[in-house]
Structure formats: structure tokens, C-alpha cells
């Protein structure tokens, strides 16, 4: 069974962390992943940096620019992950924009992911219908789960469509924003969380964007199976370095 699916079947709320591969230093990738697992994180999104990350706010933009400057590429990342499954057992997802995958070759990329033990992909700028028509068969062939985003503006009909072609979880973007833009949830968000909860979707939902501390994590996981933290974690390693991951996860999980 895909590790994402088994993890989603566990009877607990999930904490998922995003980080930018190759940041702050090119060779931090593996140790960050290992430390996150050690400190109780349930799932990891490994950010494959892109020159033009449209859906990201300044924090992840800057970390991506720095990672690229450090020499991070698709090849380098794959190389770093070669023995990752010797030490790490939680689900690993690669999150990145479509162009680098497209250049690598979508099938070659998926095949490599399977070899390395990657469980899923999040590609914000690969539209659902293009995935559905052109790539779903390839993803399935290599046992990869593709995760789609929904937002407060996504219509119910479209959510149902996305639900119908998802096979892991649905990434619920908490508000109309790029990553790291807002902090804290207001009435509008909770109404949206409730609305989606009532839809009784086939796939569990994991909330991301705007989750930065214990309070927002607790709020989000009241409505959803789990929550994803990205910018706040990247900010933390920028400020405190990669040796203090435990203090970050503790502050979230209390």
C-alpha cells in the first residue's frame, strides 16, 4: 500500500512539513528529512525549487532562489535521495512546478520517484484536466499519488470532480493567497472548512497555507485530517538553522 494511504488510515491528526530542497545549504536535504521524521512529523513535502514559483510568497521564493544558486537541480535532488528509504519510512512527496518535470520527461520523472520510494507529487500548475487526460495513467503505473489543491473559490462541482480523480488526499488551501501570506484563521476560513467537511468527500483533506503555529495547526486539524506547514518552517531554518528542528516541531505539537 502507498505510504500516504496507510498514513491517512492512522487514527491521528497529521502534521506535514514542506521544505525547499537545497536550502539553506545544498546538502541539507537528507538530514532535514531525517530530523523531521525523528521529531514526529507524519509526512514531508520536498520542494523541488523553481525559478518562477507562481503560487508562492516571498519566503519560499527566496529559499527557492537560494537553493538554485546553491546548485540544486532535479538530478542533484534525485542523487541525494538515493538511499533515503534506508533511514526514513514516513511518506515523502515531491512538490514542484511542472516545467522542471516536463523537461526531465514526465514518465522518466515518475519512474525515478518510484525507484527512490517517493509516494506522491504535488504540482500546483499542472491543471486537473491535463493530468486527467494526459498523465494519470503514468502516475498510476509508477504507484504515485497526485495531490490536487482546492481553494475557498473552488466550486462544489469542481471539488467533486477533483475528488473523483484523487486517490490520496485533497490539499485544501486555507484562503485566497500565495504561500505564507496570511496568518490566523477568521470566520470566513472556518465557514469554508465546515462547508468542505459537510461535503463528505471520498478523499480526506489536509489544510495548508497560513499554518504557522500550534494555534493554527489545532484549528485546522479540527476540521481536517491534517495540516501542512511550509513558509513558517522555512523561516525557522533561515533564522535558527537546521539543527533546531526539534524546537520547531515541539512548538507546533506541544
Amino acid at each position: 500500500m502507498n505510504r500516504i494511504v496507510s498514513k491517512l488510515n492512522e487514527d491521528k491528526k497529521l502534521l506535514s512539513i514542506y521544505f525547499t530542497a537545497g536550502y539553506p545549504e545544498i546538502n541539507d536535504t537528507v538530514s532535514i528529512i531525517q530530523d523531521l521524521e525523528k521529531n514526529g512529523v507524519d509526512m514531508i513535502e520536498i520542494g523541488l525549487p523553481f525559478s518562477d514559483p507562481l503560487a508562492d510568497g516571498p519566503t519560499i521564493q527566496d529559499s527557492s532562489t537560494a537553493a538554485l544558486k546553491n546548485g540544486m537541480t532535479t538530478e542533484v535532488l534525485f542523487k541525494q535521495l538515493e538511499s533515503i528509504r534506508d533511514t526514513v519510512s514516513i511518506p515523502l512527496i515531491i512538490m514542484g512546478y511542472f516545467n522542471p518535470m516536463f523537461q526531465y520527461g514526465v514518465e522518466a520523472f515518475c519512474k525515478k520517484c518510484q525507484e527512490l520510494g517517493i509516494d506522491g507529487l504535488i504540482i500546483p500548475d499542472l491543471p486537473v484536466d491535463v493530468y486527467h487526460n494526459e498523465y494519470q495513467a503514468i502516475f498510476e503505473k509508477y504507484g504515485l499519488i497526485n495531490v490536487f489543491l482546492i481553494t475557498p473559490q473552488t466550486s462544489d462541482a469542481r471539488i467533486r470532480y477533483i475528488d473523483s480523480i484523487s486517490n490520496g488526499f485533497i490539499y485544501m488551501v486555507s484562503s485566497a493567497s500565495t504561500t505564507g501570506a496570511k496568518s490566523g484563521f477568521g470566520d470566513e476560513q472556518t465557514a469554508y472548512f465546515e462547508r468542505i467537511g459537510k461535503m463528505n468527500l471520498n478523499n480526506p483533506q489536509v489544510i495548508g497555507f497560513g499554518i504557522s503555529n500550534n494555534e493554527t495547526f489545532t484549528q485546522a486539524t479540527k476540521y481536517a485530517k491534517g495540516a501542512i506547514i511550509g513558509s513558517a518552517f522555512v523561516k525557522h531554518v533561515t533564522k535558527h538553522g537546521v539543527k533546531t528542528i526539534d524546537s520547531f516541531t515541539k512548538s507546533i505539537l506541544n
Binding site: L54, A55, D125, P127, L149, T151, V173, A176, T178
Partner: peptide, 11 residues
Amino acid sequence: GGAFIPEMLYP
């Protein structure tokens, strides 16, 4: 061509 946009822009 096409529309390779994040879901946030879809509406």
C-alpha cells in the same frame, strides 16, 4: 497554449 495555472487562479 493551454492554461497551466494553479487552482487558485482557476475561477
